[in-house]
């Protein structure tokens, strides 16, 4: 009986729903439906059908596709406040807990510079990096929840979808990075327009590169758990080796080698250079804390380092597009 009752539950909803199809003020379509007989088709009122036309592929339709995929990432980010908060936990832990704690040990070595100030550029990179990774994971989610299919069958290029995703992830990651940028005062770094623009610029580029990398991986991996596993395995070592938390100078040879081939090092170094150029510190401190990346004694210019990130990002995006286009 109770089951019977449950089954008949939706009936009133269905009736009102059908009735609302009739034009406002139309004669009592409701009564003919309320009988509950064997599903009578409501008399098809001659409603004017809004017919739409799907145009041929064009640059404009691809642009719209990129834009809507990008916007979807933003809408979902804004709706998911938990994610905004949780992805800020890690940078805060590193900056304030680790930074304050290790300060006691490192005070002698930093020539009077607060350790938090030193690792701050690394934290700026870290925030962007982890958020970008999470954004890329959305492709895996979309696959698990079926939404990926909706995008795959649309009459647009697969590349438009990948580019939209990459831009969306990059935007979200940059916004997170901006939140951390607001903490500069807490670690004794003076604001200036040059600093803000420079940091945001590097963040955008890094976010884009990491999202592209994440998408490239996400396309191959079908399950969320394995994706997270792979990310942990790749991202954490990359982050530690990059020199975000220590100066990349006077390291053991093996670590120096790893550091120089770690792509993330080329984002951390210009970021640190930029931040340190706004600091009033002794020359000795600068030498120790901001040695820069050097190849056989030649210090790479910041612009070249940034270019490395840009090129890597573009290459990974291209691979992601190629992979995505090849899947059925």
């Amino acid at each position: 009986m109770s089951r019977e009752h449950r089954l008949s539950g939706p009936e009133p909803m269905v009736i009102t729903a059908s009735a609302s199809v009739a034009p406002a003020g139309g004669p009592s379509t409701t009564t003919s439906l309320a009988g509950g007989g064997p599903a009578p088709t409501p008399p098809a009122e001659p409603i004017e059908v809004v017919r739409v036309h799907v145009p041929q592929r064009s640059a404009r339709s691809e642009y719209r596709a990129v834009k809507i995929v990008w916007r979807r990432e933003l809408v979902r980010f804004v709706n998911d406040r938990m994610r905004i908060v949780t992805s800020l936990v890690q940078p805060f832990l590193f900056l304030f807990v680790l930074g304050s704690g290790l300060q006691q040990l490192s005070a002698a070595g930093t020539h009077g510079v607060d350790l938090k100030t030193f690792i701050y550029p690394g934290i700026l990179c870290m925030t962007v990096m982890f958020t970008a990774m999470f954004s890329a994971a959305s492709i895996v989610w979309d696959r698990e929840f079926g939404f990926l299919r909706e995008m795959m069958v649309a009459p647009v290029r697969r590349s438009s979808i990948v580019i939209g995703k990459a831009l969306g992830g990059a935007t979200v990651a940059t916004v997170q990075g901006l939140i951390v940028l607001c903490l500069a005062w807490a670690v004794h770094i003076p604001y200036s327009l040059g600093l803000i623009f420079g940091v945001v610029g590097i963040q955008v580029l890094l976010a884009f590169a990491i999202t592209s990398f994440g998408i490239m991986v996400a396309i191959r991996i079908k399950q969320m758990q394995s994706f997270m596993g792979v990310m942990q395995m790749v991202v954490m070592p990359m982050y530690f080796i990059s020199g975000a938390l220590f100066p990349a100078r006077g390291l053991p040879t093996w670590l120096t080698v790893l550091n120089r081939i770690d792509p993330l090092a080329y984002a951390v170094d210009p970021m640190r250079r930029l931040v340190f150029s706004h600091l009033q510190i002794s020359a000795a401190a600068r030498r120790v804390l901001d040695p820069g990346l050097s190849w056989w004694g030649w210090r790479m210019p910041a612009i070249l380092e940034v270019a490395v990130i840009a090129v890597l990002g573009a290459v990974m995006l291209a691979i992601a597009v190629a992979e995505f286009s090849a899947t059925e």
Partner: peptide
């Protein structure tokens, strides 16, 4: 297409899902 398995974005509203579809298909 209506698939056997759901392909909606659960985080979006009904209307947002339709808008997204319309944009992907280039509806005026």
């Amino acid at each position: 297409l209506v698939f056997q398995d759901p392909t909606l974005d659960g985080y979006l509203t009904a209307l947002q899902n339709l808008r997204l579809h319309a944009e992907l298909y280039g509806v005026e």
